Simulated assay, not measured.
Amino acid sequence: MTDTPWLTVVRGTAPLLLSIPHTGTELADLESRLSSPWTARCDTDWWIEKLYDFASGLGATVVRTGISRTVIDLNRDPSGASLYPGQTTTGLCPTETFDGDDLYRHEEDKPDAAEIEERRRTYFDPYHAALQAEIDRLRATHDRIVLYDCHSIRSVLPRLFEGTLPVFNLGTNDGRSTDPALQEKVRGILADTGVSYVVNGRFKGGWITRRYGQPDKGVHALQMELACRGYMREPGDKASPENWPSEYEAAFATPIREKLLTILQSAIAWANG
């Protein structure tokens, strides 16, 4: 295991690499410029590192950051181009929450181009260098590997999507980031859960899935975006400091953990097959 103040890499030998880019809560000394620490952390992928803490026991490699997505979003195109043209989304260094609330106190507090570039060099580039290094290491001993990008989001966010999000949202960049056989294998598992799911719906995969998913080179990338209600108690109203995030309850999360375990075990078996 390698561990810096904000980047953790746990190495395994199975043909499975987990990326966890959005569970960080560290704000890189920006608190005085931000509207509030809670607002800055509101869109964190809460407790995903706990939900998948069984992965290393399967022999998977796990790369995770402690830096908040408010500082820099490691799953966005570093050029600043939108991954979902025509749809509302947040950028490389967001200035608004998913609800549309301002992240910064004043206009002059927002990062300019030079600061965005500095954040990219400091946090974005090292995270992606770590991902690439682990891909290369695993590909040296496996003909094919699975890169599984772990995410979650609140179930109802009218600014981003209509209605209530399915519990499981599997993204493969419209089938371009993985072999169809692996996509179908995971889709079948989701169908058997009896829980709502979609493949390549609102969330087709972010920069990580699109950048590294190269089936012709033996790297098969999946993004799993979970609706938070699948493993934690979501508020009925808009999230606030009084109701969000709810605590992680292991018993409440057990049913979805069992499904995720099946998915990861199947991904390893497929890669080894």
Rank of each mutant, 00 (worst) to 15 (best):
Gln87Val: 09
Gln87Lys: 14
Gln87Tyr: 13
Thr88Gln: 12
Thr88His: 14
Thr89Tyr: 10
Thr89Lys: 11
Thr90Ala: 05
Thr90Met: 10
Thr90Lys: 12
Thr90Ile: 13
Gly91Arg: 08
Gly91Thr: 06
Leu92Tyr: 05
Thr95Phe: 09
Thr95Trp: 07
Thr95Gln: 11
Glu96Met: 09
Glu96Arg: 13
Glu96Cys: 03
Thr97Asn: 09
Thr97Pro: 05
Thr97Ile: 00
Phe98Thr: 02
Phe98Gln: 11
Asp99Pro: 00
Asp99Gly: 11
Gly100Lys: 06
Asp101Lys: 14
Asp102Lys: 14
Leu103Cys: 00
Tyr104Thr: 02
Tyr104Lys: 07
Arg105His: 05
Arg105Trp: 01
Arg105Phe: 04
Arg105Asp: 05
Glu107His: 10
Glu107Ala: 15
Glu107Met: 05
Glu108Asp: 14
Glu108Cys: 11
Glu108Lys: 11
Glu108Arg: 13
Glu108Ile: 08
Asp109Met: 04
Asp109Ser: 05
Asp109Ala: 02
Lys110Pro: 07
Lys110Ile: 00
Lys110Tyr: 00
Pro111Phe: 00
Pro111Glu: 09
Pro111Asn: 09
Pro111Lys: 08
Asp112Ala: 03
Asp112Tyr: 03
Asp112Phe: 02
Ala113Arg: 15
Ala113Ser: 14
Ala113Leu: 14
Ala113Gln: 13
Ala114Gly: 06
Ala114Trp: 05
Ala114Asp: 13
Glu115Pro: 01
Ile116Thr: 14
Ile116Tyr: 05
Glu117Met: 08
Glu117Ala: 15
Glu118Lys: 12
Glu118Ala: 15
Glu118Tyr: 11
Arg119Ser: 07
Arg120Ala: 09
Thr122Lys: 14
Thr122Ala: 14
Thr122Pro: 02
Tyr123Met: 06
Tyr123Thr: 08
Tyr123Trp: 14
Phe124Asn: 06
Phe124Met: 04
Phe124Ala: 00
Asp125Cys: 00
Asp125Arg: 13
Asp125Ile: 13
Pro126Cys: 01
Pro126Gly: 03
Pro126Phe: 06
Tyr127Asn: 06
Tyr127Phe: 14
Tyr127Cys: 03
His128Phe: 00
Ala129Tyr: 06
Ala129Asp: 15
Ala129Leu: 11
Ala129Ile: 11
Ala130Lys: 04
Ala130Tyr: 05
Ala130Ser: 10
Ala130Asn: 04
